[in-house]
């Protein structure tokens, strides 16, 4: 994840409390989703950014995952994201996200 974005994520977690922050991703495929999710939960796997060795354990979802999708206005989601469901490998993305969440998320109900 971009180093500046890592810095901002870290700041928001400190400012609002990690239990109040949710990260939403729009990555184009499973592996990239997993890497970004890992960065905001376990820490930066590339050892380059401010989140290196920082395990925030934030709640993180990909925007196409059914759990968050259900909370959006259907028409807005369809207009902004809907078409991409035909393009992205949603199953692969969901599997990656699920496995990272179950291992590293600290604030899931």
């Amino acid at each position: 994840m971009d180093l500046e974005n890592q810095r901002r994520v870290k700041e928001f977690a400190e400012q609002y409390g990690p239990e109040n922050v949710v990260v939403l991703l729009g990555a184009a495929e499973g592996e990239a989703s997993g890497l970004a999710a890992e960065t905001v939960t376990a820490g930066d796997p590339t050892y380059a950014g401010p989140l290196t060795g920082v395990s925030l354990g934030l709640t993180v979802f990909h925007v196409c995952e059914p759990e968050v999708k259900a909370e959006f206005d259907e028409a807005v989601y369809d207009e902004q994201v809907g078409m991409m469901e035909m393009v992205l490998d949603i199953d692969d993305i969901c599997n990656e996200m699920q496995s990272i969440r179950s291992e590293y998320c600290k604030y899931l109900g």
Binding site: A28, E29, E31, A32, L35, M83, M84, M86, V87
Partner: peptide, 16 residues
């Protein structure tokens, strides 16, 4: 992990 942006774009055109 950057995928195949060329292929992705053509799929987006088709899906649209």
């Amino acid at each position: 992990g950057g995928g195949d942006p060329a292929l992705q774009f053509f799929k987006v055109v088709a899906a649209t």
